[in-house]
Design a protein around this nucleic acid. Structure first.
Length: 595
RNA sequence: GGCCGAGUGGCGCAACUGGUUAGCGUACAAGACUGUCGAUCUUGAGGUUGCGGGUUCGAGCCCCGUCUCGGUCGCCA
């Protein structure tokens, strides 16, 4: 080894020993006759002292620059009490230099690597290797490792096998767009990179593997977001002879271990459960942030005959009127503030946001007030649980717009009023998602999750209703599926799978997939299910999101070593890039002029 | 594809309703200094304000176009 110790481990007890450290120059403080260099590695910082006891070493040291890589031999000195630096782990000691060697010089780096560095994202991505030297990035990568390691430990203890599934697979046109890889051996044929190992993990169950998991890379060629990358990592698992409770128990144990090992936080051991219908009713969305209340209240029935046309017309025409209450905010937000809230929700199709304040004396204030009888307003306030000093906010539109908008408004309010404690991790299982959703575009039912999702046992009788009608009982069918939500973020999605080919065939029929088509699209899979399929269930938590949440980031790029930007480019390597004509010729692909 | 925000020395930012030579911090270079620890002090170098056009006596700022980055909606079974 070039070094005998790391830059983070020397303590007072090491005083007197001679050690060799190696690392990067974080900082040089030259006082003429005495000079200090902070030497940095992954483990920490150690102060190196140069002085006139060795003038030739000091002279050489004065030519060293930031980010050079040094090997330093020296003697550990306990610092006198008045020179201890309590901010450094190694602040009780310093290294009295004997000699050093420059292992590597460095150009002037594009941005600072210290803890105060605040470079923009673009420059950080371009020079990710510099960015990674920052203590925060080192911490992020370490937390990620620790969390994944904890998951592997738990899964091993439960007798799960980690099994790799192929990266080069077959394209399945439904769902997200696939990344395609042209075949050289078969011109005109393509592999697809997996959106998830879904089909393979189910086949592993047919294959008797019983309990499988994988820290799996997944690929989706869709537009990106702060929490969406074209390639991302899922903790994917599948279990035979399992019911939802079995999955919940294992994931809960994994989350507890991952948060403990990752960031030292003890999260609740049992997570709350909430049916999808309740989540939509009370929070307007399927991923509620339960760190604060502020439930939505529907008032459609109270306003059907009111004098406020905006509400009454929507109520009469099958729409929905719903609201929420901002407690004690009456004098905190002006008319202008409240009217301005609309800008936060108009992206969801919200045409307007109505608000009514209840002043401290109990009188109502706001644009719609004059259209209502006081008794009507009293009834609305009572329904919503609003009291003097509160602000009531309302949306009237079709149900999906109302729910989406108010859910966004609720989250916005949680942020404005700091209702959501950042140190709290509130998990919830959202269960019983609808099995089908009516697609207006295609005029038929589509799977909410995927076509292999098991129907809720109580709803099986509804499966044979008319599948060509939007009002069919099929729309009310619940599935045996579940999402794990943490602080308003969807962390995982899973379900019990269909193992009965009769049900599976009926689902295909409803989805408009003919048996020939099913054969063509997933023939091998449907075939496999015919050879003795155990009942099985699974789930796949997103590792990037989980780690980002541990560390308080909205952006998963912070916890991925080499992420891509919003246009799916790697700014460091320059991918994607053009290729040689020869490579294209091998694949029989005609070159397209690069624009 | 739509909407919103941002592009100013290497990096991070400022510049009022359009008005002198575009500032500040940091990094960088040189010098000073024997105890600093985000060292300090002195001096210095470093800019076609993303790009193109327009309005104006005058544009970093206003207008049009365009490019780039980010956020978001659509999209993501």
């Amino acid at each position: 080894m070039i070094r005998t110790k790391t830059c983070g481990e020397l303590r007072k007890a090491d005083a007197g020993s001679e050690v060799v450290l190696a690392g990067w120059v974080q900082n040089r403080r030259d006082h003429g006759g005495v000079m200090f260099i902070d030497l940095r590695d992954r483990y920490g910082l150690t102060q190196i002292k140069f002085d006139l006891d060795k003038p030739e070493v000091l002279e050489l040291g004065q030519h060293v620059r930031n980010e050079w890589v040094l090997k330093v031999t020296g003697k550990v000195l306990a610092r006198p009490d008045d020179m201890i630096n309590p901010k450094m782990d190694t602040g009780e000691i310093e290294l009295d230099i004997v000699s050093f060697e420059v292992l590597s010089e460095s150009e002037v780096i594009p941005f600072d690597t210290d803890e105060y560095s605040n470079a923009g994202e673009e420059i950080r991505m371009r020079y990710r290797y510099v960015d990674m030297r920052r203590p925060q990035m080192q911490k992020n990568l370490r937390v990620r490792h620790k969390a994944i390691n904890a998951i592997r430990r738990v899964m091993d203890s439960k007798d799960f096998l980690e099994i790799e599934t192929p990266i080069l697979g077959k394209s399945t046109p439904e769902g997200a767009r696939d990344y395609l890889v042209p075949s050289r051996v078969h011109h005109g044929m393509y592999y697809a990179l997996p959106q998830s190992p879904q089909i393979f993990k189910q086949i592993l169950m047919v294959g008797g593997c019983d309990r499988y998991y994988q820290i799996a890379r997944c690929f989706r060629d869709e537009d990106l977001r702060a929490d969406r990358q074209p390639e991302f990592t899922q903790f994917d698992l599948e279990m035979s002879f399992a019911e939802p409770d079995d999955i919940f128990e294992i994931i809960e144990e994994c989350m507890v271990a991952a948060f403990k090992d990752g960031i030292g936080v003890e999260v609740e051991a049992k997570f709350e459960r909430m049916p999808y219908s309740e989540a939509i009713r009370d929070y307007g969305c399927d991923k509620p942030d339960l760190r604060f209340g502020m439930k939505l209240s529907e008032i459609t029935d109270l306003v059907t005959d009111c004098g406020f046309g905006v509400f009454a017309n929507v109520a009469k025409s099958g729409g929905m009127v719903k609201g929420l209450v901002a407690k004690g905010c009456q004098d905190k937000y002006s008319r202008k503030d409240l009217d301005g809230l609309h800008s936060h929700i108009k992206a969801y199709g919200a045409k307007g946001l109505a608000w009514i304040k209840i002043l401290e004396d109990g009188t109502y204030n706001g644009a719609p007030v004059k259209f209502f009888e006081t008794s009507e307003l009293d009834a609305i306030a009572e329904r919503m649980g609003a009291e003097n000093g509160d602000v009531m906010m309302f949306m009237a539109d079709k149900a999906s717009v109302v729910n989406n908008s108010l859910a966004a408004l609720r989250n916005k309010w949680g942020e404005l009023e700091k209702l959501a404690d950042k140190s709290v991790f509130k998990f919830v299982w959202i269960t019983e998602f609808p099995l089908f959703e009516w697609s207006e575009d295609n005029n038929r039912f589509e799977s909410s999750h995927h076509p292999f999702t098991m129907i809720h046992p109580e709803d099986e009788d509804k499966l044979y209703d008319d599948f060509n009608s939007k009002d069919s009982a099929l729309g009310d069918i619940r599935s045996t599926s579940y999402d794990l939500v943490l602080n308003g973020v969807e962390l995982a999605s899973g379900s019990v799978r269909i193992h009965d080919s009769k049900i599976q065939n009926r689902i295909f029929e409803i989805l408009g997939i003919s048996s020939e088509e099913a054969e063509e699209r997933f023939g091998f899979f449907v075939e496999a299910l015919k050879y003795g399929t155990p009942p099985h269930a699974g789930i796949a938590p997103g590792v990037d999101r989980m780690v980002a949440m541990m560390l308080g980031y909205d952006n998963i790029r912070e916890v991925i070593a080499f992420p891509k930007n919003q246009k799916a480019m790697d700014l460091m390597t320059g991918a994607p890039a053009g290729v040689d004509k020869k490579q294209l010729d091998d694949l029989a692909i005609k070159n397209v002029e690069i624009q």
